[in-house]
Amino acid sequence: MALRSRRKKTPLSVRRITWIGVFVSQALMLHGIERLLPVPQLAPGVKLGLANIITLVALSILPWGDAWLILLLRSFLGALLGGGASSVLFSLAGGILSFLIMSALLKYRHIFSTPAISVAGAFCHNLGQILMAGLVVETFNIFVYFPILVVSALVTGFFIGVISDLTVNALKRSRLTPVADDHH
């Protein structure tokens, strides 16, 4: 409710549209950089998740709907830039699940730290992709991947969370954020 009322009060200003554009392009760039890094593919869906920084930062400083829009735009544009139709399915499955869990946890950010929220998001992102693989290929045992998913989520999620936290602080100090700083 609080989110919705705040969103109504915030007009779709040029500044907000600009932020959406900046975040989408940054997410695509991070996605591109990540593809260049020689990270071993341990299991389907396991990756560094640099673009998750954008989701976390956007959720922290923009209205919920804007962060949602950024997620959808980057999933579809990311597929156009490389990957193809199957990557949209995987990207969306992971992205939506991690978005939902992170936005839910961010409402209780007085008890959850940003890195922990990011770890939960990273695990859900990988879990979403594994579940999608399980849906596409019926005979697919997802349990065998749980240990590796947990370890990779802990390592990458914490790292991503710290970066996001520093980014949010820097942005807030810059006073460029479109929504007034209220809930911290």
Partner: peptide
Amino acid sequence: NRYFKPGDLIIY
């Protein structure tokens, strides 16, 4: 305090 809060234990 920034990188660890009590609720984190639930997640971990």
